[in-house]
Design a protein around this nucleic acid. Structure first.
Length: 491
RNA sequence: CGGGAUGUAGCGAAGUUGGUAUCGCACCUGCUUUGGGAGCAGGGGAUCGCUGGUUCGAGUCCAGUCAUCCCGACCA
């Protein structure tokens, strides 16, 4: 076990906190509920962002940037939207400070600088964007409008946790406008599949694709699609959402277009987003009591090379050989780092890179130079052995693929083992206590959903897409049901 | 916002009936080390969250205040 790292078994929440800070991903700032994302954590986020950005562009989207501030009157235009976010908004009321005459050296808000209309720090950007779109859309020829924004948003949450829920967080939000309902729904679903593709194939985290129940829906949406992942402690995490907004925002902001017949119609909308919360999902899906375990496709460093030497002469000889290995790996696009620092000993470096989740580690010393071999250690399985320097780059390339697949396979196996199909209330409670996804019948009413939540703290994570239809009885009321839905306790 | 707890060096902690602050990690210097978080020796670093009060004297007692964490309700 890594030094000073709480084990998962002892205290999963503490393990997560320890890991995020000790692996140097992020730390609490001195600002309430806000974190500092440190360079190593930010490097992982940058990799995520870059991959997603390519995927968005490959599906026809372009990036733009909208204001941080939303005038209050914009936010209140879409009623459901306003209600949903009103309780967690940071509000700017003044624009100036001045020296406090009663407290030398202190500043105070200048009461004369009160804003005529308050500005809301965006909790999400539908309002400001749809207000802008009114000026951009006149004709069916202006559609579809496929725009994404990388931004920070603020939601004044009561309680925060690094990456999973912070007052300010980074995300992307796509906001698209379409001429037909069918096309907007198609877009909503397309982006859900993009998210699922990313989370499964890059992060190595299996997800359930589904739709939210009415009570879990995004404020202002007609339908919310989501991907749901399962963490190692058996709790679910919503990893991304894609919303079909209908004509709600077009009507609220009066965005109409002339169709081919010259008649005015309201525009159809979607919005979709993933956030730095994905960092939390990444950590909680694969990591162990020795530290972080990163999937090769997102790891800032995929292979680290640690030299082992006694003399300067040995160190120089190793560096010479390592330069060749580095070159061969770099030619294959593998992100490699040679840690030739003389300020830390090899054992220290081994532990450090393990904690940081670097997928592969090469150890190379005098006896390896002699035998034309290296020591190769895998982070995911914690196994190591000696391999020949001949064909090393090929071997490593294959291993990185294997590790990527292995992480997904392990996560999927865990999820399968933690997926329970139950038919009675007792079975339902027993399954929830074991943790995981619980597939159970529900009578389809919000009242029942609410009662189950109050009794068990479990929520309906989603109704899976292409959900098998099957007659059954609601676990709480016994009323007729046509399908199972996915329950879980969630983050 | 309700319930509970905690603020002492960069981090984690100790500090007795009130007497001017201690330990571990980290940091700096030197030597020996280097194939799983090195050893020894020496060294630097704290107006004890903040404000006020009691006292000859406050980390310690009292009052106020701010902040953070945990458990709830809310949530990407």
């Amino acid at each position: 076990m890594a030094k000073d790292l709480t084990t998962r078994e002892k205290d999963y929440a503490q393990w997560y906190q320890d890991l995020v800070t000790k692996a140097d991903l992020a730390e609490h700032s001195d600002v309430r509920g806000c974190m500092v994302i440190k360079p190593y954590g930010y490097a992982i986020w940058e990799n995520m962002r870059d991959v997603l950005d390519r995927m968005f562009k490959a599906t026809g989207h372009v990036n733009a940037y909208f204001p941080l501030f939303v005038p209050k009157s914009f936010l209140e235009k879409e009623e459901g939207h306003a209600e949903g976010f009103a309780k967690e908004c940071a509000v700017v009321t003044h624009y100036r400070l001045k020296n406090d005459p009663d407290n030398p050296g202190k500043l105070m808000v200048d009461p004369e600088s009160k804003l005529e209309e308050e500005l809301i720090v965006r909790p999400t950007s539908e309002a400001i964007i749809w207000n802008t779109y009114r000026g951009w859309i006149q004709s069916y020829r202006d559609l579809p409008l496929l725009i994404n924004q990388w931004a920070n948003v603020v939601r004044w949450e009561m309680r925060t946790r690094l990456f999973l829920r912070t007052t300010e967080f980074l995300w992307q939000e796509g906001h698209t406008a379409h001429s037909t309902k069918a096309e907007a729904i198609e877009e909503t679903e397309r982006m859900l599949h993009v998210y699922a593709d990313f989370v499964e194939n890059y992060m190595g985290v299996p997800v359930i694709k589904g739709i939210k129940t009415a009570s879990e829906r995004f404020a202002g949406a007609e339908e919310t699609y989501c991907i749901e992942a399962l963490m190692q402690d058996g709790k679910a995490l919503q990893a991304g959402t894609s919303h079909f907004l209908g004509q709600n925002f077009a009507k609220a902001f009066d965005v109409q277009f002339a169709n081919k017949e010259g008649k005015l119609e309201y525009v159809w909308a979607t919005s979709w987003g993933v956030s730095t919360r994905l960092m939390g999902a990444l950590v909680m899906s694969h990591s162990d009591d020795n530290g972080l375990v990163l999937p090769p496709r997102l790891a800032p460093t995929q292979v680290v090379i640690v030299p082992i030497y006694r003399t300067d002469e040995e160190r120089a000889r190793i560096a010479e050989r390592v330069a060749e290995i580095e070159k061969e790996l770099a030619m294959r696009g593998i992100r490699v780092k040679f840690d030739n620092r003389d300020t830390h000993r090899p054992g220290w470096k081994f532990a450090e890179y393990e904690l940081r989740g670097v997928p592969l580690r090469i150890g190379i010393g005098p006896k390896d130079l002699e035998a034309n071999q290296v020591e190769l250690a895998r982070r995911d399985t914690l196994t190591k052995g000696t391999v020949s320097q001949i064909g090393l780059a090929d071997h490593i390339e294959k291993l990185l693929h294997e590790i990527q697949h292995n992480l997904f396979a392990q996560a999927e196996a865990r999820r399968t083992a933690s997926s329970h199909y139950v038919n009675t209330w007792d079975e339902f409670n027993a399954a929830l206590d074991k943790g995981g996804f619980v597939y159970a019948h529900w009578d389809g009413t919000a009242e029942t959903e609410q009662k189950i939540k109050e009794k068990t703290k479990a929520t309906i994570r989603c109704i899976p897409l292409n959900n098998p239809q099957e007659a059954g009885q609601c676990i709480l009321t016994g009323n007729a049901s046509v399908q199972r839905v996915v329950f879980a306790r969630a983050y």
